[in-house]
Design a protein around this nucleic acid. Structure first.
Lengths: 342, 342
DNA sequence: ACAATGGTTTGAAACGTCTCAAGCTCTGTT
DNA sequence: AACAGAGCTTGAGACGTTTCAAACCATTGT
């Protein structure tokens, strides 16, 4: 692998001059520039980013930790962040925490060792010790939380307008005629989940429907667990809700499997809507009414805020909070049961 | 950001000793080790991977270029590669080429500058000059191609058993009663696409059905284009095929939209099967029969081969070719139209 | 013709780490 | 009692860049 020294030698100039040609930071005469460029092409030389980073202490690299990039929503998130980063000359390293706090700790450590200049974090669901976050902040490594917002840690964040989004979804179910609407949540320790639950309450309130605490099903991100929780509450036609709303994809998957296990067809027997697109079509045939988060934009905005912090553009000391609106994609699963399906 | 020097100072030892503690490459007395460890914890010190890389000329980093990680199949691919890499101490940088040859060139250059130790590449569909690949190989940077295999370049590769997989899918459609089966392909310049087409021919041949060249629809990865191509061939009930098989996801999306535009319902009016899971449920209600590639395993195997090359475990000079079997997930879109749907 | 000017070019130091060779400190042996 | 050897510890150089200060060179003004 040729070095700048080799290039200098071939071009018959000093190392410094080659560097000036490459970075363009210092003017170089046309004649030398050409000779240097020729040598570069000749050798197929690519500047060593590692050495440059060491010298300048700028890696031009960002890190993003997501629970699992095979789950719909996260790829777009990453893509949005990557595009925003690249536009400003940065590279993004994406890693998966599997929603495991311990693993997240290791990844945070890895990214610090890699000297990323900033971190985008979707907090792992398995209780993350606050210290993990404060350690980063204390080391004054810029960080922005996406999607999931930590309690009690003042950090920049970008997420969906949870309350409104959930309210919109539930209001739609109400509009479609549902009255006994259950909600299945993810880990309630997450602020987002609580806020989405709040949206549910607001929608019921607005419609003058009393909240039945038995219809609030506290779940998690493991579909199997969720199915387990749901089955007994779906089996009895007398007490069964007439609609279920889910606050996230994995939970929704569990609920849909419970539907299947209990022989329920949607929307015929029960209406359904959820946050997030599900990329499983083996479980379920009708298309699913979905509260779609602007994943790409969340990623992109978060990266921009992060870069503003890194480059000192954003100087305010208070944390920045951005909440973006979701949109409701109405599909078959919430259709009014009345007029029979084709 | 504390350096090893700072740690040495606090611990009252030499820089070398700290390095020995960290790397464990040279024995250090218990007493000093404890002092050093205490200093490390104290300072919240994280070894500078950049400096280490420069010195050892090992970045412990791999790069992977995929067309678009928001398209189902690629996230699993990346995940498989990432997991395999991490198990052996490597970090993975994933970037998107958008199937653009020019962009791919830039990304290759970026990864070289980053001094990744090896590259996993899903070749961009837009004709990639062979020189892009040979340049990497000439620089003796280990590289493994995934999913899409280049013509005429001897390079390690891991992909699905295209011919068999396509044959399996088409044979299934035949078994379900289809006789006039069209195939919609991606860019035929890609070897995989040609091989899948070959599988289609084989399946017809085996069933004693003559190949009708008008039923071979040469498409690309842009759903809009594909819809355009399909619509005229779907509009006339007399000449319309009774089934369509697609060789990839984006093409399938285009075909399904054409179905919708022409008012065709599947499987009622036309049967359908495709390579790759589609993560779109707004287009289509019935679940889709799919030839599922072992994406995770492809990524994982490719990473392992790459690492074997990097670490000198794999010494053979001929290129390694791995082909993994696909599995057929039979769902509703290929159901025999006969017995009416529920 | 000379000094000043301004633009190019150069050489060397430094970034943080690893690692080699050399130095140090014991312990055990003769 | 002295020495060999084993086992730790240290110091310095090098990895490939960038960048600062200094040197160089030609031009311009006087």
């Amino acid at each position: 692998m040729p070095s700048i020294k080799k290039v200098a030698e071939i071009a018959g100039v000093s190392v410094g001059t080659v560097s000036h040609v490459i970075t363009g930071s210092v003017p170089v005469s046309e004649s030398l520039r050409l000779k240097v460029q020729a040598a570069i092409d000749d050798l197929n030389y690519h500047p060593n980013h590692v050495a440059r980073s060491l010298k300048t202490s700028k890696t031009l690299t960002l890190g993003i930790i997501v629970p699992d990039m095979t789950i719909s929503f996260f790829p777009q998130l990453i893509r949005g962040a990557e595009t925003a980063a690249r536009q400003r000359g940065y590279t993004l390293i994406a890693v998966n925490s599997d929603d495991d706090g311990e693993r997240q700790k290791d990844l945070l450590s890895l990214l610090r060792s890699q000297r990323v200049e900033g971190i985008l974090l979707v907090i792992a669901a398995a209780p993350t010790p606050l210290s993990q976050l404060t350690r980063i902040l204390d080391a004054s490594i810029p960080m922005v939380c996406l999607d999931r917002i930590p309690d009690r840690v003042p950090v920049d964040s970008v997420s969906v307008e949870d309350v409104d989004a959930a309210e919109m979804g539930v209001a739609h179910l109400i509009a479609m005629g549902a009255r006994r609407i259950a909600i299945a949540t993810g880990p309630i320790a997450l602020k987002n989940e609580r806020r989405r639950l709040q949206g549910y309450r607001q929608a019921l309130l607005a419609a003058g429907i009393a909240v039945d605490e038995d219809l609030i099903w506290y779940g998690n991100f493991h579909p199997e667990d969720v199915s387990e929780i749901c089955r007994p509450r779906l089996s009895d036609p007398a007490t069964r809700p007439d609609a279920v709303f889910c606050t996230n994809g994995p939970t929704a998957l569990g609920v849909l499997r419970a539907f299947r296990d209990c022989g329920l067809k949607t929307p015929r027997d029960i209406a359904f809507a959820t946050f997030d697109e599900l990329n499983v079509d083996d479980v379920f045939s009708p298309s699913i009414t979905t509260v779609v988060q602007p994943a790409y934009e969340i990623g992109s905005r978060a990266a921009q805020i992060l870069l503003d912090r890194i480059e000192g553009v954003a100087t305010q000391t208070e944390s920045i909070t951005v909440r973006l609106p979701a949109i409701l994609k109405i599909r078959e699963s919430s259709r009014r049961p009345g007029p029979a399906a084709t």
